[in-house]
């Protein structure tokens, strides 16, 4: 007699039913928890047990992946780094050029505004040199007698009075700055209309011969008075200190020049009053 083995023999059937019942129980547990928006006991246990493991695993694999990626792409990174460095250098040079252009543009705009504010013919000149030994406060400009520049031509920048021309060549001229001790400019205080003479002190300027009764304040603006050389109304500087003595005939004011004489580039030369 041949024994017939059935596919669904009892033992397998028992295992199958048991497994399905357990699986269904687990599934219902999970579904119930999910439907109520909470975690099941299994979720909590698995989370407590495996979340640190997952965290560590992620960190380790990320670290390895990053290292491998860096090693594999090191050549590419080096090339890209070099290209970016070149680009940075190019852009930095362009940026410096643009900043220079912007500063020049600002200077020229101020010069233009000064020219429009004053009467007379004027031409733009560039400062091409300073006195090599600094024995006098002078600068050299690139315009001379052939351009119409002559002795005592007034030189201004966009900020105020620079000085006047001492001597001219055909293509250049030397300008005595207003901060030179030999410079004497008739001037008045814009607020109080008190007159005086502005002369240089090498680094700054001072206004002498101010009436003893004039009421000065620090910050007062000093401008040129109309005279033999200078037209009126050109800013010279602001009062920084006031020296008033009761037994003196006049007051003296120390001025901060309106012009930064260390960074003169473009100036305006008046060739006719």
């Amino acid at each position: 007699m041949v024994a017939i083995h059935s596919f669904w023999d009892e033992r397998k059937l028992l295992v199958f039913v048991a497994l399905i019942i357990v699986a269904a129980g687990v599934s219902l547990l999970e579904i119930d928890a999910a439907k109520h928006g909470r975690q099941s006991v299994l979720d909590v246990a698995a989370g407590a047990l495996f979340t640190p493991l997952q965290s560590g695993l992620t960190r380790v694999v990320d670290a390895i992946g990053t290292s491998v990626h860096d090693v594999v792409h090191s050549g590419e990174y080096a090339a890209r780094n070099q290209a970016l460095q070149d680009k940075v250098n190019t852009l930095a040079a362009a940026n410096a050029r643009l900043q220079g252009d912007a500063a020049e543009n600002r200077d020229l705009r101020r010069l233009l505004a000064m020219k429009q504010a004053m009467a007379g013919d004027a031409l733009v000149a560039d400062v091409v040199g300073y006195m090599p030994e600094a024995t006098r406060r002078e600068v050299t400009i690139d315009r001379g007698s052939r351009d119409g520049v002559h002795r005592d031509s007034v030189v201004v920048s966009g900020d105020g009075l620079v000085g006047h021309v001492l001597s001219t060549g055909p293509h250049e001229a030397r300008v005595l700055l207003v901060i030179d001790p030999d410079s004497n400019v008739p001037a008045y205080l814009q607020r109080s209309r008190s007159w005086g003479i502005v002369t240089g002190t090498w680094q700054h300027a001072k206004m002498k011969y101010i009436d003893q009764n004039a009421r000065l304040q620090t910050g007062d603006i000093v401008v040129t008075g109309h005279g033999e050389i200078y037209p009126g109304g050109i800013p010279i500087g602001r009062v920084r200190e006031i020296d008033r003595k009761d037994n003196a005939l006049y007051q003296v004011a120390v001025l901060d020049p309106a012009v930064d004489f260390h960074s003169l580039v473009h100036v305006l030369v008046y060739t006719s009053p």
């Binding site: 687990v26 599934s27 547990l29 999970e30 579904i31 299994l42 979720d43 698995a46 989370g47």
Partner: peptide
């Protein structure tokens, strides 16, 4: 399912 299956996998 405990790690996020919602009861669908077991």
């Amino acid at each position: 399912d405990a790690l996020g299956g919602g009861g669908a996998d077991v």
